[in-house]
Amino acid sequence: MLQSCSVNSEIVYHKDAASTSFMDIDIREFMSEMMAMTPDSLKQKEFGEMDKLPTTWTSMYDFSKKEGKLKTENPDSIRIMKKIFMKSTKENNKLAGFSFKMEHFSPEDYLVLKSFTKTEKVPLDQNIYNNWDGKTLTIDTENFNLKSIEESIRSKTSKEESEKIAGMMVMFFKKIGTTLKFENPIQSISGKHDWIKQIDDHSIKIDYDLKAIYEKDTQLKNADKKIIIVTK
């Protein structure tokens, strides 16, 4: 199970201060290693639950309703659930990964999402919470972590397993990266961080150093707390 999951995210920043984000979690290697080690583990409840995810984009609201698991009547939560989409990827009828999409979230939507995710664990790229006003993005590099992905995995496992997961995270993920795309061209970037690089006039790439996240004594050459990207 060593380094067998990859996570790719993309956040598109719109001119109207909203953003749309995508996340793909590739678990092909993980699943084949699980099968080889403990074939019965794939019959466990958690994997059964994951297997139920449709292979076409389905809103969290529709999926929860269909499964009889809609726990809220709060109109704000329901509005958010209708804007979060999920799907699974299958290869040869076997689970190969998941994708999540958050469609055109406004700053107000993100506030609702913060309280919503206190009870509903959704794998999110923490960078979605960076402040974007339609022209300037302020990246808080303290958000360069995997908390929401960890919590999402933990919420689907037993207490014992979730304690094991904490120690395994660095081994569990092979590659994690986030691309930030802007509708308008980038005018300036202030602040530096080892994991951030500009790809072109409209995009920035963040490649996480997993070792540095989990081994606190890793020294980064550039690690400014704030990176400010101004668009034209």
Rank of each mutant, 00 (worst) to 15 (best):
residue 58 T to F: 06
residue 103 E to S: 07
residue 96 A to K: 11
residue 71 K to S: 12
residue 100 F to N: 04
residue 46 E to Q: 12
residue 120 E to A: 12
residue 88 S to M: 08
residue 147 K to E: 02
residue 209 D to C: 14
residue 23 M to G: 06
residue 194 D to E: 15
residue 105 F to E: 02
residue 45 K to Q: 14
residue 41 S to L: 13
residue 151 E to V: 04
residue 27 I to D: 00
residue 197 K to D: 00
residue 82 K to H: 07
residue 180 L to G: 00
residue 31 M to T: 01
residue 40 D to F: 06
residue 107 P to D: 07
residue 213 I to T: 05
residue 199 I to Y: 02
residue 25 I to G: 02
residue 17 A to Q: 04
residue 42 L to K: 03
residue 65 K to D: 10
residue 164 K to S: 10
residue 38 T to R: 12
residue 64 S to V: 01
residue 147 K to L: 08
residue 161 E to G: 12
residue 116 F to Q: 04
residue 110 Y to Q: 13
residue 85 F to H: 08
residue 93 N to P: 05
residue 205 K to H: 11
residue 214 Y to G: 04
residue 154 R to P: 01
residue 64 S to H: 07
residue 129 Y to A: 14
residue 101 K to Q: 13
residue 28 R to C: 05
residue 28 R to E: 04
residue 214 Y to E: 01
residue 134 G to H: 10
residue 165 I to E: 06
residue 87 K to T: 04
residue 103 E to C: 03
residue 176 I to F: 02
residue 119 T to Q: 13
residue 1 M to G: 15
residue 186 I to P: 03
residue 75 P to E: 10
residue 151 E to S: 12
residue 153 I to K: 05
residue 49 E to T: 09
residue 229 I to D: 02
residue 32 S to Q: 09
residue 219 Q to Y: 07
residue 52 K to A: 14
residue 130 N to T: 06
residue 204 I to S: 03
residue 88 S to C: 09
residue 43 K to H: 09
residue 191 G to T: 10
residue 133 D to W: 14
residue 179 T to D: 01
residue 137 L to T: 05
residue 80 I to Q: 00
residue 178 T to I: 08
residue 55 T to H: 07
residue 229 I to V: 14
residue 6 S to P: 01
residue 193 H to W: 10
residue 214 Y to N: 06
residue 4 S to Q: 11
residue 228 I to Y: 03
residue 116 F to E: 00
